[in-house]
Structures are given as structure tokens and as C-alpha cells.
Write a protein that binds this DNA or RNA. Structure first.
Length: 999
RNA sequence: GGGCUGGUAGCUCAGCUGGUUAGAGCGCACGACUGAUAAUCGUGAGGUCGGAGGUUCGAGUCCUCCUCGGCCCA
């Protein structure tokens, strides 16, 4: 090796166009990102984006509102990042793509928080005026909106955070109420009833999340129901049920059995006691439970025969309290129940539809079936049929059958008139289930006594089990039938459609990404019962209707107008203010006749109405939205309620496209949880690595499915980020020498044209990816492009040209221009994904620019497409691969270090491959100092690759001396006496530079 | 228990309507360079495609069952 380089007088590095940039290799995102956010806010970037795009077609992604009650978690981050990438990408692809963030503000969790604060201060919610309480809820939500706004902005989310929408704005509340009134006026809203968990102590309904299960001792009873119709030999026998809530017997309306369980008729053969069942009595039990039951009643027995399910289906019993008072003289049918098991009890389940969810569902299925068979009038009026008529009789005779569910217990736990003999008509007043202290009242005992008197008690006992208790008072709760407001799913809306049919049609007309969401939503709509809108709560939009005692709603547009105007001006608090009833009813209606409903709307109705008060009402938006995007849980939630609300009021979905994302799991694929300590907090990732790292994770993941996130995965993304960042950095450094001199496409070397062709191809991939919301496809292609084709190929080859060529070199100018094209495209394509880093890069390249986010994706002219050239270079790279492989051996054997020390002989016997490289400078492409190509077969021992036929390489050292400037080994080093240690090309470059005063 | 959905190298992902020895990037190991330098280039080792049956000349790709996970219900 020559040592002229070391002895050189000139430090040639100063004569090279080496990359020059202040764009740091290490990003320092945690520090830099907040500065960029601040700059965007100072600029008013959101407004600038709108101004910039004001003449473009609008693209609206409607934000599903997060709940305003805490810091954001990884799910929020995922969701908002996806939305942001969509809005930013559409903005850069020719649309006015604005984004109005929203918040869900009403509802239970916020009420809890406020109550919790009250408890801490020793206050009681019920002692606080409702509007004072609502005010505190409002302030609480407002606080978290502020916090989350900052967190979202820190993530790089661009949106109208100055004027977001919230469900608690007065205007929103007015419009939500208005939407409800549309349902009321069109007759879709009706009052029905449903059992809910009820705390007598607190006089309030409880949600599932508000109860906890504690040990409790219940009275248990086995009750005999006499068979009055069915198979002849069963008449007069008893069907026996078991229950842990004796007080629900007055509410019994049916007995559930299971078609999967074996039953038999059993006869008592001996009795230990002289009370209770006596020898000769015949009873039906599940076979698996008979022994246990008879033992409990201290009886001996024998089994008489099987009882089949189809026999049970025909059985009608009398109510065990039929003899007690008027009101129990109805038939108790046996109904098939999916929930019935033979694990415990008797194999028959006492069904009191007002006192249990499963009871209610089984009962509704049963009555629903009957209704569909059109044998019932469905008038809603209670008209008991005679129990000595057969079931066939009432079915075929079309007798009236009461489908209403009795309200047997009031809010204070007392029996009502719907429980004859136990309510106000009872001597000594109504019996009580639970008292104000949460202790058992006398209801159970009273019912048991009545059953004994009627000789309908088979046995009794006590049972320790877990039972729901109020989270707050720690007292037991009961299931209690309560009036609720519903929307019909299957009522003819006057045009032959129903809410259900409209919703199903709307689903067919909607694009789902991924496709599976369509089936999921459809299945839910197909199956769902009527929509319950009411909640017995304080913090929400009221169901602002007046109803008479029968539940008929007052329909008066003048009243509605007064309500909505008041809400618009004062918020929904107006409904709860003193004198509201008289104020809204006005002079046309007698306040004594009308009941003001005080229930509030389920928050799903609020968020289901966001399309009305944002998309329709804001001039910057449009209805319907182009796209809704949320987690897959929202098939049951927001997608669902928005669909129903919109179909009920407008006949179609409020969206054209629905995108769903999965959930974020810990690294092992399991749910993140506090107790496992495997949670990842977006705040931590941002503080340690930066928001762009988190965003890159989102971009690289298959978000349609559940994703995983943890330390390893974050590190993977940090590594990918670094690679991309360094590639961008190198371009910035090279482009520092770009004078913007352009070279005609036709004058460009093939390598440059190849890169333009690749850009043209990538352009299609990128746009298709954004169209399909398939971001990982884009990020994958771009990263691969940067790694495989830029860093390891194009840049590596062109370093010599860019660093060493003379200022006048066309090759160098063409390369610069291509790097410029690559930079502009790669950076803008990535800008929606990595908004901070690409902003930083863009401003580094274009110091006078405002923001990369105001840019549009650059077009790639069709002129750039050259499939033939691409095919040719595929062959070139095949040959290159063999050369590189041969050099690797030389390196391993320590015969060379740098590839520039080599000048191999390449024997290409494959005609197609040789043709491809014939007119090319393979030394340049292989980054060697020379390549000799021949078509003669290679000598034995030449290097080949198993998958490449017709190419063999014989390595050789380059002849000549090492150029002190370009480090290539050439024979023309020293040809210019003025620069004796450099090659001719470099000497010429030096002359030019000197002429320009550069050296 | 039901509806929907998923399990391909350490990590993230490709593998279209079943067809040659299952791919990529990163990471890792080793090497080179020292003018992208806490960077860059090269080479290599990693997979019984969750498991078991079955259909087929042939299955990661189709069918059945099992298993582990997820969302929503019950």
C-alpha cells in the first residue's frame, strides 16, 4: 500500500463535499418535542392548516369522545395517534382534513368521584341540591379535559383543541335533549320496566360496577307449585322450586326448566314430621337433586317415572299463594330456560321477572314468543286468565295474557299493592324486605308463614353464600322492577321500516376496516333487545319529558321549544331547577296531571348524539362523517349507539367508514394490569424516548388486532427510528451542498433513474397504504427502502460521487437532485407518522418554511417509471451480490480491508446478466477500484453463489496507488504533477475547486 | 357458556385464490471501515409456521378437535 496519503501536505477532507449538518444523530426527543409543540401552538398551526386547505374537499374524521376523568393511558394514545395519522395524511393528500376532538363528560364515574370527595368531607350527596352537585361534576370534567388536552398535544395530535366539543356544553345538552324529544315525538320512546339492582339504604339504582359480593346468610325455601294442566297423571302433583329470596314469591310468574336435565316424578313414602309433605304426595324434581331435596325435608321417597322436557313444556301450575288473596289466580307456565342447571336447587328455577336479570330475560323470551304467535292482545292491561283453563286453551283461544311485570317492592323495600296480601292491604301494613339500616325486614318471614298456611312449603333452611352489596354502604341490595324508558327496536316507523331494519341496512352501506367489524356489529343489532335510555342518576342530560300515570308522553312542540331554549341558555340544569315543571308545561297543561320524569339519559345516548351537535352544527364539519375510528369494544358502544340514534332520527348511519383497532397487551400477550406491574404508560415512553417512538410503534403494529407493548418492543422501535433518522440526517448533510442545479431526466445516469423509478413505485404503495389505513405497510416499505436501497446501496455507491466529484460534474448534480427528490418525498410521506422528527428535518432543509405539515405529498411523474430499467438493475444487483460475496472472503482472509483495495475479475457466462452490466461501470456499483468483466468461463476455484448461475468472481487487488483524496486505488494517481498523490479525477476536481476559491 | 377474533425466527411484520429447500427489517454473533462514527458496510446463526388429527400427489395456507390469549356478552 502506498503511504502517500499520510504524507500529503493537503488535508483533502476539506476539499470534499462531506455531509454537513447540525441535525443531530441523537434526537433528544423528550426535550425537543415539547419545544416543537410550543412552536406549533405559537404558529396557530391548526388555523393555518385550515386556511391553507379552505378550497379543498373536506375530509372529516369524527372523534369518539374519551371520558374526562383521568390521565390518558396507552389505549388513548393508540387511538389518538391513529386518528392523527389519518387526518394528517389526508391533509397532505389534497383534503381539508380537520379534526375536532371531543369529550364525554356526563355519567357515573364522575359522579362517584364527586361523591368520594363528599365522603372525605363527611358530606352526603343527598343533602346537596342536585344542581350544586351537577356543578361540581361539570368542574371535575372540565379539569380533566384540560389535562388530557395537554397530554394529547404532547403526543403530537393536531386538532382544534381551542374549541373542542364536549357533551356537557349547553348547546350539546340542548341538542341531546332535542334528539331525545325526536324519539318521543315519533312514538319510538316508551315507558316499560326492568329489574335493576337497587340499594334500599341509599334509595338508588346501582350499576354492576357499584356492587361488591360479600358473604351473606339467606333464608332458603323449597316451594310446591300445584300442576293444574299438562299430562293427566301429573295434574295434582307438584313442581318444586328452590329460592334464596322468599320475598320474591309474590312476584313469581313462571317456572324455568331445562331441556338438558333429566326429571322424574317422586312419591313421598314416609315423613318424619307431621307438618309439610306427607306420604302419597307426588312431586317433580331433577333426578340429580331429588335425594338431596328429600333429605332436606326429612322424607323417604320412591321414583315413579321419567318426565320429559316436551311434557314439561305443556305444564301449567297455579301460584302457591292462589288461595291467599285476589291477584294470584293466574297460571304459572313452565318455560325453557338456558340458565337452568342441576348443580343446586331442584332443577326448577323460580322465575320472578321483576327480581332478576335471568328471570327477566327468560320471561321476555317467553312472552315475546307468545306475542309473535299473535295469541296475546299485548294491550298491557293486566287481565289474568283462569288457571283451570289449559295452556292450549289460552293459547288457541287467544285469551288475554298479562305481560306486564309487577312492581312488588317499592323504593324503600316495602311490598306494594302488586303483592296482594303483603302490601298495604296486609294487617299491620306492608311487609318489608330490607330496612333503612340494611337489615332484613319481615318480608321473608311473612311469605314463609303464608306458604305454610297454604301448605305449599316443601322445606326451608338457611344458606351462606356471596350476595351483592352496595359498594358504598356495604349493605345488601335487591333486584327490583323499576320503570325505565325504552326505544322500540321493532316498531314500524311509518315507512315499513323499523329501527332495527334501518340499522341493519345502514351497516350494509358502511365500509368496515377491518371487514370483520361489519359482522360483529350486525350480530349485535340483530340480537339486541329494546334500547334502554334511562338511568336513575344525577349527572347527565335529563329525559326531559312529561308523562301521565300510564306512561303516555306529553307531545307538545311548544313545551319542547321552551325546554330546548332553556337548555341552550342555561344548560340541562334548567330541568332540575325550582319551578321547572310549571315553567315548561306553561298554561296549556295541568301540572297535576303530568309527572316530570327525573331520570337521566344513559351516556351512550349523549355520545350517540355527537354527530348531531358537532357534525351537523359546526360549519367546519360535515354530516355524515367520512370515518369513525375506535377500539373494537365500541361495536357495543359508540358505533352502536351512534348508529341507532342516527337511524332513529335520520334513517342512516352518521359515518361512511368504521375503523376499529384492537387492544394493547403487555409483552407476553396478556392484558396490562396494575397488579402484574406490566403496564406501559404513554407519559413514561414520551419522557424517556419520545412521542415519535410511541407513534412509530403504532405505525409498525397490526393495529386491527391486539398489539403488544413492552421494553423489548419499544427498543425495537427505537432502533428502527435511529436508522431512519440517520438516513434522513445523511441526506440533510449531503443536501447542504445542493445548489438546486437541475439535470434533465434524460441526462441522468441509470442509477439515478432507477431511484426515481423506485420513488414512483413507493408513491403508489404509500398512497394505497393511506387509502387502506394500512400504516404498517407504509412504514415497512419506507424503512426497507431506507435500509436496503438507500443506506446499503444507493448512498453507499454515491458517496464517492457526492464527496469527490468536481462541482461541475453532471453525475454529482444528478445525484444531488435525486437525493433532494428522495428527501422531499420520504420526509413528507413520514410526516403524518413522525410529525416531530419530520418537522425537525424539514425545517433543517428549508429554514424559511413554516411547517412540513403544510406541505402536500410530492407527485412522482409517470416519466420516472421505467420497468425495463428496474428489471435490468435487478440483474445488476444479482451480479453485485456475487462480487460482494467474493470480497467478503478476501476480507476474512485479511487480503483486503476496504472494498476499494480490490479489482476483481467477473466472469459472466449468463448472457442476460452480462448484457445487463455491459454498459455500466461495475466498479462504481460494487464500490471497488476496478472490475474486469469477461464472458469467458471462470477458472476453477472462482467464487460463486449457489443461487446465481453464470457468474463467477476471481478476486484481485487493484493495481496502482491509493488516491489520497478518494481512497480509490488507481493507476492514474500522480498523473497531475500538481497533485501527485491523487487520481486524475480528483486532481481535476481540485483544480475546479481552486478556481472557485474553495481551496 | 355464547358471538367475533388471533397465535409464522428474540422483536415487529410479509406470505394472494394450497405447489419448488418458509421470507424481510431490526436485534444478536462475527468481520470491515474510520470522510453518515454512540454512525456506516458485509457475512452468519436463528423457525417441527400454538398442538393433534384429517382432506390432498402436495398444507403455514382447507376441515375437525384441543390449547393459550383478546374484545363484547352471559
Amino acid at each position: 500500500m502506498t503511504d502517500s496519503a499520510e504524507n500529503s501536505a493537503l488535508d483533502y477532507s476539506t476539499t470534499l463535499y462531506l455531509p454537513q449538518t447540525d441535525f443531530p444523530m441523537r434526537a433528544g426527543l423528550p426535550k425537543k418535542e415539547p419545544e416543537i409543540v410550543a412552536r406549533w401552538l405559537d404558529l396557530g398551526l391548526y388555523k393555518k392548516l385550515r386556511e391553507d386547505a379552505k378550497d379543498r374537499p373536506r375530509y372529516v374524521l369524527h372523534d369518539g369522545p374519551p371520558y374526562a376523568n383521568g390521565n390518558i393511558h396507552i389505549g388513548h394514545a393508540l387511538n389518538k395517534i391513529l386518528k392523527d395519522v389519518i387526518t394528517r395524511s389526508f391533509q397532505m393528500r389534497g383534503y381539508d382534513s380537520n379534526y375536532v376532538p371531543g369529550w364525554d363528560c356526563h355519567g357515573l364515574p364522575i359522579e362517584w368521584k364527586i361523591e368520594e370527595q363528599y365522603r372525605a368531607k363527611g358530606k352526603n350527596k343527598d343533602e346537596v341540591p342536585v344542581n350544586e352537585f351537577r356543578k361540581e361534576c361539570r368542574d371535575f370534567a372540565a379539569h380533566w379535559i384540560k389535562v388530557q388536552t395537554e397530554e394529547f398535544q404532547r403526543l403530537g395530535i393536531e386538532g382544534d383543541f381551542e374549541t373542542p366539543y364536549t357533551t356537557m356544553d349547553f348547546h350539546s345538552e340542548a341538542r341531546i335533549a332535542g334528539e331525545l324529544l325526536k324519539f318521543a315525538m315519533s312514538g319510538q320512546l316508551y315507558r316499560g320496566s326492568k329489574p335493576v339492582m337497587w340499594s334500599v339504604v341509599e334509595r338508588t339504582a346501582l350499576a354492576e360496577a357499584e356492587v361488591e359480593y360479600q358473604d351473606y346468610e339467606s333464608d332458603t325455601i323449597w316451594v310446591k307449585f300445584p300442576v293444574v294442566n299438562g299430562p293427566d297423571d301429573l295434574k295434582g302433583n307438584f313442581v318444586v322450586i328452590w329460592t334464596t329470596t322468599p320475598w320474591t314469591i309474590p312476584g313469581n310468574r313462571a317456572i324455568a326448566y331445562s331441556g338438558r336435565i333429566a326429571y322424574g316424578v317422586y312419591e313421598v313414602t314416609a315423613a318424619e314430621n307431621d307438618f309439610g309433605p306427607q306420604p302419597g304426595e307426588k312431586l317433580v324434581f331433577a333426578d340429580a337433586l331429588a335425594e338431596e331435596c328429600f333429605a332436606k325435608a326429612k322424607l323417604e321417597y320412591r321414583r315413579l317415572r321419567d318426565v320429559k322436557a316436551d311434557e314439561l313444556a305443556t305444564v301449567i301450575c297455579a301460584h302457591p299463594l292462589e288461595g291467599l288473596a285476589d291477584g294470584y289466580q293466574f297460571a304459572v307456565p313452565l318455560i325453557n330456560g338456558e340458565h337452568v342447571t342441576d348443580d343446586a336447587g331442584t332443577g326448577f328455577v323460580h322465575t320472578a321477572p321483576g327480581h332478576g336479570r335471568e328471570d327477566f330475560d327468560a320471561w321476555m323470551d317467553f312472552t315475546g314468543d307468545l306475542m309473535r304467535q299473535a295469541v296475546l292482545s299485548g294491550s298491557g292491561k293486566t287481565q289474568h286468565f283462569s288457571f283451570d283453563s289449559a295452556r292450549e286453551c289460552f293459547v288457541t283461544a287467544g285469551k288475554d295474557f298479562h305481560t306486564t311485570i309487577p312492581f312488588t317492592v317499592d323504593d324503600a323495600g316495602f311490598f306494594t299493592g302488586d303483592a296482594p296480601g303483603f302490601g298495604p292491604d296486609r294487617d299491620g301494613g306492608p311487609a318489608r324486605v330490607i330496612d333503612d339500616k340494611g337489615k332484613k325486614g319481615n318480608a321473608n318471614q311473612t311469605v314463609i308463614t303464608a306458604l305454610i298456611e297454604a301448605d305449599r312449603l316443601f322445606a326451608r333452611g338457611r344458606l351462606k353464600h356471596t350476595y351483592p352489596h352496595s359498594w358504598r354502604s356495604k349493605k345488601p341490595v335487591i333486584f327490583r322492577n323499576t320503570p325505565q324508558w325504552f326505544v322500540h327496536m321493532d316498531m314500524d316507523l311509518g315507512d315499513g321500516t323499523t329501527l332495527r331494519s334501518r340499522a341493519l341496512n345502514a351497516i350494509d352501506d358502511t365500509r368496515f376496516v377491518p371487514k370483520a367489524g361489519q359482522n360483529r356489529l350486525r350480530a349485535m343489532i340483530e340480537d339486541r333487545p329494546d334500547w334502554v335510555l334511562s338511568r336513575q342518576r344525577a349527572w347527565g342530560v335529563p329525559i326531559c319529558v312529561f308523562a301521565d300515570e300510564d306512561g303516555n308522553v306529553l307531545k307538545d312542540e311548544a313545551v319542547n321549544k321552551r325546554i330546548l331554549e332553556a337548555f341552550e341558555a342555561e344548560g340541562a340544569d334548567a330541568w332540575f331547577a325550582e319551578g321547572a315543571k310549571e315553567r315548561f308545561l306553561g298554561n296549556d297543561h295541568d301540572p297535576a296531571k303530568w309527572i316530570q320524569v327525573t331520570d337521566i339519559l344513559d351516556v351512550w345516548f349523549d355520545s350517540g348524539s355527537t354527530h348531531a351537535f358537532t357534525l351537523e352544527d359546526r360549519p367546519d364539519l360535515k354530516w355524515p362523517a367520512d370515518v369513525y375510528l375506535e377500539g373494537s369494544d365500541q361495536h357495543r358502544g359508540w358505533f352502536h349507539s351512534s348508529l341507532l340514534e342516527s337511524c332513529g332520527t335520520r334513517g342512516r348511519a352518521p359515518y361512511d367508514t368504521v375503523i376499529t383497532h384492537g387492544f394493547t397487551m403487555a409483552e407476553d400477550g396478556r392484558k396490562m394490569s396494575k397488579s402484574l406491574g406490566n403496564q406501559v404508560f404513554p407519559q413514561d415512553v414520551m419522557a424517556k424516548s419520545g412521542a415519535d417512538i410511541l407513534r412509530l410503534w403504532v405505525m409498525n403494529t397490526d393495529y386491527w388486532e391486539d398489539q403488544r407493548l413492552g421494553q423489548t418492543i419499544i427498543q425495537t422501535n427505537i432502533d428502527a427510528y435511529r436508522k431512519m433518522r440517520n438516513t434522513v440526517r445523511w441526506m440533510l448533510g449531503s443536501l447542504a451542498h445542493d445548489k438546486g442545479e437541475s439535470v434533465d431526466y434524460a441526462d441522468m445516469p441509470e442509477l439515478e433513474r432507477l431511484m426515481l423509478h423506485r420513488l414512483w413505485e413507493l408513491d403508489a404503495v404509500v398512497n394505497k397504504g393511506y387509502d387502506d389505513f394500512d400504516f404498517k405497510r407504509i412504514s415497512r416499505h419506507l424503512l426497507d427502502f431506507m435500509v436496503l436501497e438507500l443506506s446499503a446501496f444507493y448512498f453507499d455507491i454515491r458517496k464517492d460521487t457526492l464527496y469527490c466529484d468536481a462541482p461541475s460534474s453532471t453525475r454529482r448534480k444528478a445525484a444531488l437532485q435525486v437525493v433532494h427528490h428522495i428527501f422531499d418525498r420520504v420526509v413528507t410521506w413520514l410526516a403524518p407518522m413522525l410529525p416531530f422528527t419530520m418537522e425537525e428535518a424539514w425545517l433543517d432543509r428549508h429554514p424559511d418554511a413554516v411547517s412540513v405539515h403544510l406541505e402536500q405529498f410530492r407527485k412522482c411523474p409517470d416519466e420516472w417509471r421505467d420497468d425495463e430499467l428496474a428489471a435490468k438493475w435487478k440483474k445488476v444487483r444479482t451480479v453485485r451480490r456475487v462480487v460482494t460475496g467474493a470480497l467478503e472472503i478476501e476480507r476474512r482472509e485479511k487480503r483486503i480491508g476496504s472494498s476499494l483495495e480490490a479489482a476483481p475479475f467477473v466472469h459472466v457466462t449468463d448472457d442476460a446478466l452480462r448484457e445487463a452490466i455491459e454498459d455500466l461501470d461495475m466498479a462504481e456499483i460494487c464500490i471497488t477500484s476496478g472490475v474486469s468483466v469477461s464472458s469467458t468461463p471462470a477458472p476453477g476455484g472462482a467464487f460463486t453463489l449457489p443461487d446465481v448461475n453464470g457468474v463467477a468472481v476471481v478476486p484481485a487487488l487493484a493495481k496502482g496507488r491509493k488516491c489520497a483524496r478518494s481512497w480509490r486505488v488507481t493507476e492514474d494517481v500522480g498523473s497531475d504533477p500538481e497533485f501527485p498523490d491523487v487520481s486524475a479525477r480528483d486532481a481535476a476536481a481540485l483544480h475546479e475547486l481552486r478556481k472557485l476559491g474553495r481551496i
